[in-house]
Amino acid sequence: MAGIFWLASYPKSGNTWFRSVLRACLGGADGLLDINALQTGKIASSRAWVDDVAGFDTSDLTQAEIENLRPHVYRWSAGQGTEPAYHKIHDAYRLTGEGQPIIDTEATRGAVYIIRNPLDVAPSYAAHNGTGIDRAIDRMGDHDHALSRVKEALPTQLLQVMGSWSDHVTSWMDAPGLALHPVRYEDMLDRPEDTFGQALRFLEVDRDAACIARAVELCRFERLARQERDHGFRERPARADRFFRSGRAGGWRDTLSPAQVARIIADHGAVMARFGYLDAQGNPV
């Protein structure tokens, strides 16, 4: 079985940027990169994927039935190819009602988990959803937060339970028995060649330093943002003005109020400290 590598993150943490670099490397990094053709793989929550493999419609199933189905679908898909597959996922790492990891242990070869300072995630997540920043902070602190939670209609994506930002990070980082390679967004910015190079080696994408440097250059934030401005981006949510917003670390200092910073630290201080976003005194770094 070739297996699946999951590209996992909370939203607005650099997953699309990471997939762009991966796409550029897989394609040889010698041409233009089209942000509307980032075919590194699927997204775990694709209703069309699960419906196709199952042979019946998830729109006729309860949430619990869909959840129990998903590991079977990934295991089947992992067994079909001869090369590793790279699929994006925003679900937290969790167990189904039948007690199986939703990503399926047998299907999964490993996961890259991309983490970003929640102080920077909050303003970005607010813009992504077209809400105020306080609403984004509420969502990031909500242990029941989920994407595509629609009970009475049919979104094209399946329900993705994420929990709070801290729940999401620890679910993946501490997942028992999972081969995991953590990547900090801030390291992707500060030391791109090293950071992407290590992650790509973990993903069994063997490329030399020059190739990785070319891919990083092709996927510079300004280039991706310019493509969105000129041609649009199909992954932009309808409520957001644009997907590629600022692409930097520490932008929160200009956008968050002291009270908002305090709320995020109160909600996520322990996990922030663990991943280097707070100093020994508990202050943002």
Binding site: G55, F56, E65, N68, V73, R75
Partner: peptide, 19 residues
């Protein structure tokens, strides 16, 4: 076997919807 829940033979088809 063409899916975790579907099997086929010439002119024949089998489906399991769990539960």
């Amino acid at each position: 076997v063409i899916s975790p829940f579907v099997q086929v033979a010439e002119g024949r088809f089998w489906l399991h919807v769990p539960g």
